[in-house]
Design a protein around this nucleic acid. Structure first.
Lengths: 205, 205
DNA sequence: ATTTAAGTATGATCTGGATCATAAATTAAC
DNA sequence: GTTAATTTATGATCCAGATCATACTTAAAT
């Protein structure tokens, strides 16, 4: 069976494969936009180093974080694969080196490497899982439940007593709530000893 | 490039392939549960005939419709592929013949047929697209906007002057709103001539 | 053709979380 | 080390949509 370890190895291998095959990373500075909604997809983006956030923005300018991608992950395939314009912005949240693999090359990779194809299927399944979970939350659950579920998810493969590297604003932007609401709920969860706060940082208990 | 026509053909071919290879459909009666949340996935389900709805249910019994699957479509792969318990119920909304393909056989199919693998990637991408769109709506948009977007999506490959085969309750269960709210909004959209109502049925304008 | 069930319709009230406003505590930048 | 910029914090008010209640209409079952 497919394990977490070879999953990670395969991810790193993919970047190596690209570099070995002469794909060149582009440098994006913090805040740079990699693509915007409405644009026609032409490539899949592999992150060599750095981090990006994928956000949809409504008419009032309110952001919703669709996903966060970091080193050795890739993004932008769904739009390319269904051949529809992007729905979201993708923005570097720190300086990042990103390899853009053109559509044809990506399809080539898929054909040439059945392993990669299988891995993509798993990656897409993971993302679907997360989105299904969040849809249920946003549709049916109240603020406190949403934040509990989201924090549990973010903490899922994190050690005891480690801190969460997300701001209240980001939690708000992932849960469809407002910062003030998230702040009040985090405080409440802390009062109930469901988590610990040290200088405002959220610590797993 | 991959077109809608060969996409549909491939879908139908898959069922034919399964029948030719001696996979036997099981009959589910209207209301029968195919699987429930918490169960460990062992198979992928291909619908020969009929229709199912995939729903998550919260503690108060409120349903959220994660997806509706019909003839020649399949469901249940993400949980199998990431090897996590199901999140949702899948329930036959009418009498249905469904072929359960065991995990091993499904992985076999994927390996043996690169076409199928590519098609699965596209299918997952489509579902991700829909879920991303709905997440943005549930997180950021007001009731009227949600219903507009949802109706536009449901009408997307439907002719002019055709009727929507969904109830107000189903729209509510897909948008995280309450029936009364959906009813009031549909009425308003009708008043604004954005759609037509005939005996309560929603008609594309 | 009647009964029953499911879906649609509408008004009145209530409430969770948004919004607004203002300040304190951290962190980043120079 | 000081200033500037984020982030966290907290109270007061407001409102979209939930909830409750009740009735009507259409479709399904017998």
């Amino acid at each position: 069976m497919f394990t977490l370890v070879n999953y990670v190895v395969l991810r790193i291998m993919t970047i190596k494969y690209l570099l070995d095959n002469n794909f060149k990373p582009t440098l994006y500075k913090k805040g740079d936009v990699i693509y915007e909604p409405g644009a026609q997809p032409r490539a899949v983006y592999f992150i060599k180093t750095g981090k990006v956030r994928m956000v949809t923005v409504n008419d009032d300018g309110k952001e919703f974080i669709q996903g966060i991608f970091k080193s050795s992950e890739y993004f932008g395939e769904p739009a390319l694969l269904v051949n529809k314009p992007y729905l979201a912005y993708t923005i570097a949240t720190q300086d990042s080196e990103i390899i853009a693999v053109k559509g044809e090359d990506f399809f080539e990779m898929l054909k040439a490497q059945p392993d990669f194809s299988m891995k993509l299927i798993q990656t897409l399944s993971h993302r679907l899982f997360y989105k299904s979970m969040m849809l249920e939350e946003l549709a049916n659950e109240h603020a406190e439940h949403r934040i509990r579920t989201l924090i549990a998810y973010l903490f899922k493969d994190v050690e005891h007593t480690q801190e969460l590297k997300v701001t209240r604003q980001q939690l708000a932007d992932m849960s469809g709530l407002r910062v003030e609401t998230v702040i009040r709920i985090i405080k409440k969860l802390s009062d109930q000893k469901e988590l610990k706060l040290i200088k405002g940082k959220i610590i797993k208990i």
